[in-house]
Amino acid sequence: MADLRDVLDDAEVAPDVFALRPDYRALLIAVDGLIPGPGDADSEALLRQAESAAGKLLAGTAVDKLPHIAAWRDAYRAFGAKPQRTRNSLEALTRRTATGLPRVNRLTDVYNAVSVLHQVPLGGEDLAGYHGSPRLLRATGSEPFNTVADGTVVVEHPDPGEVVWCDDAGVTCRRWNWRQGRRTQLTADTTTALFILDALAPLTDHALTAAADDLVGHLRRAAPDLQVTTRLFRDAAAERAVPRA
């Protein structure tokens, strides 16, 4: 696997993605030295904290009216997706808190909980499954996406113009932050990973950084010697328009 800094130095966000949403920011966190394993007492406590926090948020507000979820619904409409049918990852998780967030493995459980707690879409990818560096772009429609449908492994293709994360081998996540592929999914054996935090206004830079710091802090509880490298992508032309407080 390439050096973490090399992976992020070669990462890209295409200009036509920023043209779609000039307020978009992507914070990439590449880590090595993770201690994998099943969920434990710490990850369970974090999931319960996230479920409780979501319950308070939703006490007087519909899920689709929460500010960052509403912003992502608008972003999905901008490239032709129907948010009521293909929900962004933050909305999908927040909706599940009423009956309980999924329990998958320690790494997945931690980043799902942080996503809900900080109300930011957050994805985790196993860097051992990557071919080259991550790129966010608008698809041509020919890119392969390895997934499962009705229990069967299949290869799908994104819609032309769809916003996708990909590497040299194909799509790693469809519709910006809707569905991740099988090839790079985190497992109980993952030791090196890429975490992607997606932000739109009204989420501030400060809130985005706080979510990243919280994620890394929880990962380091199980892996004190964790190596961490980060990179923030933003539209330089729209920099002054993004809230910083």
Rank of each mutant, 00 (worst) to 15 (best):
S115G: 00
L203N: 01
D198F: 15
V216A: 06
A188H: 12
P160Y: 05
R221G: 14
F195W: 09
R175N: 02
G181C: 15
D10E: 13
R135E: 10
W165I: 00
A14P: 06
R73G: 02
D3V: 00
E162N: 05
L137G: 03
A71P: 02
R183T: 13
A245R: 14
R220A: 09
V148Q: 08
A54D: 06
V13G: 09
L57D: 15
Q49M: 13
R106A: 14
L215V: 04
A81F: 12
A45C: 05
A212S: 13
D213W: 01
P202Y: 09
T209G: 00
R175S: 14
S133D: 08
E239K: 15
R138C: 14
R221T: 10
T147H: 11
G123P: 01
L215T: 08
H157F: 04
P158N: 01
W165L: 11
T147Q: 10
R106W: 15
N112H: 14
P121I: 03
D64I: 00
C173K: 00
A62H: 14
T229F: 09
N146Q: 14
G161E: 03
E162M: 13
R240H: 15
H206P: 00
H157C: 07
K56T: 15
D126P: 03
Y111Q: 07
P243I: 15
A26V: 11
A238H: 13
A71Y: 04
L137W: 01
V171M: 02
S142H: 10
A98R: 14
L20R: 04
R234Y: 06
P38L: 07
W176V: 13
A128N: 08
V163D: 12
P121R: 12
E12I: 02
R221E: 12
Q84E: 14
R48M: 00
G55E: 06
N177K: 05
V110H: 11
A241L: 12
L58Q: 08
H157S: 12
P243G: 06
V171T: 11
